[in-house]
Design a protein around this nucleic acid. Structure first.
Lengths: 137, 137
DNA sequence: CTGCAAATGCGAACCATTCGCATTTATGTC
DNA sequence: GACATAAATGCGAATGGTTCGCATTTGCAG
């Protein structure tokens, strides 16, 4: 569980805490908060300090390895691996199934914003609703 | 500037601090944080306490008068009047300015997803980049 | 194997937000 | 219009996520 599937990112010193954090994120099925990451690591027998996790996450974010998300109605940031796919998902509120969207609805929109003087670097999109199977109820 | 243009919402006791907060939000061109609201009010000669502003904002949000937004890469919530429009924002990574977008890039996309059997109930979109003033560096 | 820069352990500091409580205020009733 | 009462506010202290500072430890180049 603490073995990383991907090769270690270049330009980053490989340390035990960093490997632990990366490992947890690689095995996460959903974005995690810093303290959740700490719990995961402690559960697997390692010790780690919360402030260390924050520093590691900051580094990873700066390196583009990890993405930091602010989820609405939550006062806690969550982090997930940057999988470098430009893809969005619709999440079913019934069964939690994740439906990938084939193309990005923003593509046509970004140039429009660019024209107005705002240089778009990225975006985050959350779609929620019900899939076919969970529909009415 | 402390006069409210809209009639006072029913079911809410009208007090001076509440009128001040509502007035500031009505005149705001972008979402404001609680402390920004305090500054605005103090600038106009009134005194108000930060915790009071939070309580008032909580109430307004609960009543649907105001919308609370969580912005990425910021640990501070911002609030704006609920204008009952569907709206998204672009956030400048330089100065943290929040730029409202005029129309929703998803509008054309949602029916497409609907056709595939997914019933879209809502979405949250955040665009980030640099505004004109923060651009190159 | 050794030395040094960088990372971590650890706790204190920070900052947005919330809580608690005594005092003040808005509003319905007489 | 004055009063009573429940609710709102002033104010400060507490909370909780996140960051900072510094002494110690660790990874890596020579």
């Amino acid at each position: 569980m603490k073995r990383t599937q991907t090769p270690w990112p270049s330009g980053i010193k490989k340390t035990r805490p960093r490997a632990c954090v990366l490992g947890v994120l690689e095995n996460a099925s959903a974005p995690l908060s810093a303290s959740q990451i700490v719990s995961q690591i402690e559960k697997s027998g390692d010790a780690i300090w919360l402030s260390t996790v924050y520093r590691i996450l900051d580094l990873f974010v700066k390196q583009g390895i990890v993405v930091r998300l602010a989820v609405m109605n939550s006062d806690m940031a969550v982090y997930e691996l940057n999988r470098f796919e430009h893809k969005h998902y619709a999440v079913c509120m019934g069964c939690r199934k994740i439906v990938p969207m084939d193309n990005c609805p923003l593509e046509a929109f970004v140039p429009q914003l660019d024209e107005s003087g705002f240089h778009v670097l990225g975006h985050h999109l959350e779609i929620y609703g019900y899939c076919r199977d969970c529909e009415p109820k």
